[in-house]
Design a protein around this nucleic acid. Structure first.
Length: 553
RNA sequence: GGACUCGUAGCCUAGCCUGGACAGGGCGUCGGCCUUCUAAGCCGAAGAUCGCGGGUUCAAAUCCCGCCGAGUCCGCCA
């Protein structure tokens, strides 16, 4: 709804500014509902003080045709607009009620291939992978809602040394069928890594294994596939628990077997960037990348990055490629962009996230030093259950368990998406598992509160709006903002914008809830409709971050 | 050593790309609020040289340069 209001403000300003940027912004506090800083940039051209200019322009503004902007005033060089809240409230409530679960949906078009998670099949997802998966899945949900056709991809790295180590381990170690598949594979991987390190002859076996797999030896292929699939069963179970689903799983080896890696190497070899001295590599210095990119080993076999080039070329043909990658892949991301330019293909876009480190240092699957997402979720669910028992001892066990699980999933997902991806995170249990304020339970609770009011009364068809309280105005403005927030988050690839928005909306609702009575008040009809609009807006936004929506908690 | 990212109150964080009005939140601390729609809530107080130094600008947390600190990368690994 605010999209319409912004357009109106821009139109009004265009009348007095000409083609000067309207420079609309959120006023810092108490200065109205929308501000323009245009007078500052206009000041030099017109050789007048911004404050004076603002006064002048406000006098010139013609608000007679305006629907949502009631008045404008000049202050400190800014032009501050005040909304016509009764009108905005009515229009917003009508729109939200009319669009329901679609409220906030955008009109962006085009196909997006969104790759995320893509952890090696050598163990369970740890919390670093979790950050990747949750950012990626949230972004997928947001872009889909913004209108894009989104296909999510898990790029399965089956040609790496890790999986070969697992296969080697499975040949001589027993797989514990009692524990979750990915954890069982991790045990084999850790143990086999140690064996390979200690026994030289195993390193030769490892090389033979990798060569046989690359060559497509049938028995070896079966061994690798089974091992990877077994691990993936566990990984998918964890993802499912988080509400994450991948539309396609793409095996790295496919690009070798299909010959597309070979073909892309030949194409690159023919370009001016190709160099050969002992090995074939690309000189990317003309793209500002000093590090050369080696394409083939001395023995002629391909490298991970080379296979990924074929992979990205394939993706570029299918649509707009967006990859969620860890910060360790920054250089490769730059190289990938450069190579796609060389090939004349559209460049992939990247969402790079920093690492989560443990107090004792970085995580390592091979050394068995990591916190798995399963552990994190279990711990979260256990702590949540204690909270629910304490608060809702009156409800049956089934209810308490279900709520605890949903609170846990919400808390973990929110914690991961709340912080901007470029920040390093030092993992602390207390931070992720804090169930008070600035977290998912706070948001879920706002929704539950709204539901509990609404279940006690019929939603009125008719209502009068009248003057709004401060709390009501804030709510209306926030509810009206969802379409703008969704679009911006999708365009800037920033799920954290939704996280911030959701927190603001929940905060505003809790304030409203405490300040005013809905049921039995004189404004009951209007407030019921407002609460319903908030309920829908909260639910739609929570859905975009994969935070479970609860009617009661 | 080079490249990239981060550095905002005791702790966590928004704002930085697109420079403008007293730098927003939260945790923790202190003080209030449950006979009324679930207090996982609300209201208030104290707490910030926006890492440091220079520059550009009428105006810098925001842009530029240098320095310091943390992280990541710099494999014919993945």
């Amino acid at each position: 709804m605010l999209d319409v209001v912004l357009e109106e403000a821009e139109r009004l300003l265009a009348g007095v500014l000409g083609d000067v940027e309207p420079a609309l912004q959120e006023p810092r506090g108490g200065y109205g509902d929308l501000a323009s800083a245009a007078c500052f940039s206009l000041a030099k051209a017109r050789r007048k003080a911004p404050a004076e200019l603002a006064e002048e322009l406000v006098r010139e503004l013609d608000l007679t045709g305006a629907r949502f902007i009631a008045r404008a005033e000049a202050l400190n060089g800014f032009i501050n607009f005040h909304f016509n809240y009764p009108e905005l409230a009515r229009a917003t409530l009508e729109r939200v009620a009319g669009e329901g679960r679609s409220y906030g949906r955008g009109r962006r078009r085009g196909k997006v291939i969104l790759e995320h998670t893509s952890a090696n099949p050598d163990g369970p997802l740890h919390i670093g992978h979790g950050r990747n998966a949750i950012i990626g899945d949230s972004l997928a949900r947001i872009m889909r809602f913004a209108g894009y056709e989104v296909e999510t991809e898990y790029y399965l790295n089956d040609m790496g040394r890790q999986l070969a180590v697992v296969v080697l381990g499975l040949r001589r170690l027993e797989l514990d069928r009692e524990v979750k598949q990915d954890h069982a594979i991790a045990r084999v991987y850790v143990e086999a890594s140690r064996m390979v390190e200690e026994r030289e002859e195993l390193q030769e076996e490892l090389s033979r294994l990798m060569r046989a797999y690359e060559a497509g030896d049938e028995a070896t292929v079966r061994e690798f596939r089974e091992a990877a699939e077994y691990c993936m069963q566990g990984i998918r179970e964890t993802l499912r628990r988080l509400g994450i689903h991948h539309d396609i799983t793409v095996w790295e080896s496919e690009f070798v077997r299909s010959g597309s890696v070979q073909r892309v190497v030949e194409r690159l070899e023919a370009t001016e960037h190709a160099r050969r001295d002992e090995v074939l590599y690309l000189d990317l210095s003309s793209f500002g990348i000093e590090k050369e990119l080696v394409l083939c080993r001395r023995d002629g076999t391909m490298l991970y990055a080379t296979r990924d080039i074929a992979h990205h070329l394939w993706k570029a043909e299918r649509g707009r490629a967006i990859d969620v990658w860890g910060a360790d892949h920054k250089l490769l991301a730059e190289q990938m962009r450069a190579v796609m330019r060389i090939l004349g293909a559209p460049e992939p876009e990247f969402v790079i996230h920093e690492f989560i480190t443990l107090p004792e240092g970085s995580m390592s699957t091979r050394r068995g030093r990591f916190i798995s997402m399963d552990e994190l979720l279990d711990e979260a669910a256990e702590r949540a259950l204690r909270e629910v028992e304490r608060r809702r001892g009156d409800r049956p066990e089934e209810f308490r368990r279900r709520v605890a699980e949903q609170v846990a999933v919400g808390a973990v997902r929110y914690a991961m998406v709340r912080v901007a991806p470029e920040k390093h995170v030092k993992f602390r249990w207390e931070e992720v598992l804090d169930f008070e304020r600035q977290g998912a339970p706070f948001i879920q609770y706002a929704h539950a509160r709204a539901c509990r009011i609404l279940e006690k009364a019929e939603l009125p068809g008719e209502y009068t709006v009248g003057e709004l309280s401060e709390e009501e105005r804030i709510l209306v403005k926030l509810v009206a903002s969802l379409p703008v927030v969704v679009d911006r988050a999708a365009e800037e690839l920033k799920p954290s914008l939704l996280a911030g928005y959701l927190l603001e909306l929940a905060t505003a609702f809790h304030s409203f809830y405490s300040s005013a009575r809905v049921l039995g008040s004189e404004k009951q009809d209007f407030r019921l409709r407002l609460v319903d609009a908030v309920r829908i807006t909260l639910a739609n936004s929570m859905e975009l971050l994969g935070i479970p929506v609860l009617e009661e908690m």
